[in-house]
């Protein structure tokens, strides 16, 4: 079974930016509603393949995308 991680953002705009950057880098990602157990936020979060976490983090770091938190699902 695939293990997933999820990234929470402060704004929808950051989530959209992250999706675009990560797709361009060939990462497998999907925008999903924020899982209730992680936050009461009503917005979107980005789910990614946990095996790619190093790459995901480095892409977002390099582009200075503001991230609230990263959790393993």
């Amino acid at each position: 079974m695939t293990e997933y991680g999820v990234i929470l953002f402060y704004t929808t705009s950051s989530a959209m930016r992250a999706e675009k950057l990560l797709v361009a880098e060939g990462c497998s990602v999907k925008l999903i509603p924020v899982p209730r157990h992680l936050s009461s936020d009503c917005g979107v979060a980005l789910r990614f393949n946990w095996q790619q976490q190093e790459k995901v983090k480095s892409v977002l770091d390099q582009a200075q995308v503001e991230v609230d938190a990263i959790h393993q699902l």
């Binding site: 705009s13 930016r17 675009k20 925008l31 009503c42 917005g43 979060a45």
Partner: peptide, 22 residues
């Protein structure tokens, strides 16, 4: 409604707005 609801139409609306911003 962009980004509010997390379903595909909400996300697509948010993408449209983000691409315009860019």
């Amino acid at each position: 409604n962009p980004g509010r609801s997390g379903h595909r139409l909400s996300i697509e609306a948010a993408r449209v707005i983000y691409n315009a911003r860019e």
